[in-house]
Amino acid sequence: MTELIGLLSFGSDGWGDELLEGAFLTLRLALATLPFGLVIGLCVALLKNAESPALQALGNLYTTIFRGLPELLTLFIIYFGGQILLKEMLDVVAPGTTVEVSSFVAGIIALSIVFGAFASEVFLAAIRAVPKGQGEAAAALGLSRWQGFRLVLFPQLFRLALPGLGNLWLVLLKDTALVSVIALDDLLRQTNVAVGVTKEPFFFYLVACLLYLAMSLVSTTCVALLEKRYNRGFAGSR
């Protein structure tokens, strides 16, 4: 048992620092994905809420496709497809150059596309839950459409969307593990490396799982705090 704990020590003969570095990369990937995912989600939700049937159809199609595809497949399509597309485009400008898509960037793109598809449903439900009178009141006060959205509607719908978004964040955190398959040195891949050297798969994968679990639990606490803050004007009604 002590030997196993020793394997987790920091420095050159232990794997503790490598695993933590991996966990840090996992966290960075998820955090970098979040803003893109939120913006995509909000834009697609606004499309689906638009008056034009064509725009609505576009938004619905986006959600249908990226909610239906396995995340791993989306990741591969972005990673390999992006590589091929970039190469073809570069061949026009400078033939013969080789390109390699960074797996971190591919990870961000794929994960935020998927996050956006799910988040758009959450945002749409929240948009529809904010009373229509709020937008009309903003217009009556002489706010422009953008101002009304930014200052009046968004704060209200964000409060309603928060629980759903919190769940999606947890899903995102777990989905980052998939990028280990396209050779990004995240927590899971660092664990694979450690397993390859030490031949202690059960112990190391268990440690990796526990690290993911710790990140999930910390996130749950943070989301709960955020929700509490956003609901502070509603203490009586809840």
Binding site: K174, A177, Y212
Partner: peptide, 11 residues
């Protein structure tokens, strides 16, 4: 529910 499916599969 708190750990990635892929990590569980490896485990």
């Amino acid at each position: 529910r708190g750990t990635p499916l892929l990590a569980q599969l490896f485990l």
